[in-house]
């Protein structure tokens, strides 16, 4: 392996880390914040793998495997927490959780109205067929709603 590999890996790792940090700081969707944090972890993993290659041993990769483990735990718990939060306020917006602000402090509100963009139309996700029915016999969602 070439010696110049290590700095290049470090550079890519640093860039991923920085971009992830920006995502974590600016995005308001809880899930996106979490994904950004995971991306920061990927930057760190690149560092570790790069150093492992540099030193010609497997310690770096072993550490990345531990990182994967911990990240998986973290993801499980974070998703659970996000679900609980969502259940409470019916939104994934992190800005609704401002309860820990200083007393007598007004909550931060969104000032400017949104610019309605054409691309921002509601999206339709595929709906799964209820179990026990053949897809072609499944009722449309509207009908299912009327049937109860």
């Amino acid at each position: 392996m070439s010696q110049a590999i290590l700095p290049n890996y470090l550079i890519v790792g640093a860039i991923l880390f920085g971009l992830g940090a920006i995502g974590f700081l600016s995005r308001r969707n809880l899930i996106l914040m979490f994904l950004s944090a995971e991306m920061m972890l990927q930057g760190v993993a690149l560092n570790l793998v790069g150093f492992g290659g540099h030193h010609k041993n497997y310690q770096g990769q072993a550490f990345v495997i531990f990182m994967l483990t911990v990240a998986a735990c973290e993801a499980a718990l974070a998703l659970a927490l996000i679900l609980v939060l969502f259940r409470n306020r019916k939104t994934l917006d992190v800005s609704v959780w401002q309860d820990l602000r200083e007393a007598n402090q007004d909550p931060v509100q969104d000032e400017s109205p949104l610019l309605l963009e054409p691309e921002m139309t509601p999206m339709h996700f595929p709906r799964l067929t209820p179990a026990g029915l053949r897809p072609d016999q499944a009722a449309s969602p509207e009908e299912a709603a009327t049937r109860g």
């Binding site: 971009l19 600016s26 969707n29 917006d93």
Partner: peptide
Amino acid sequence: GLAQYDRRCREPLLASLAGFLLMGALL
């Protein structure tokens, strides 16, 4: 559909500045 909060973000300038400052320092 798309939520309001996905179409605006918190402190884009400061967040980018902080991220790129850190990135620049590392680089």
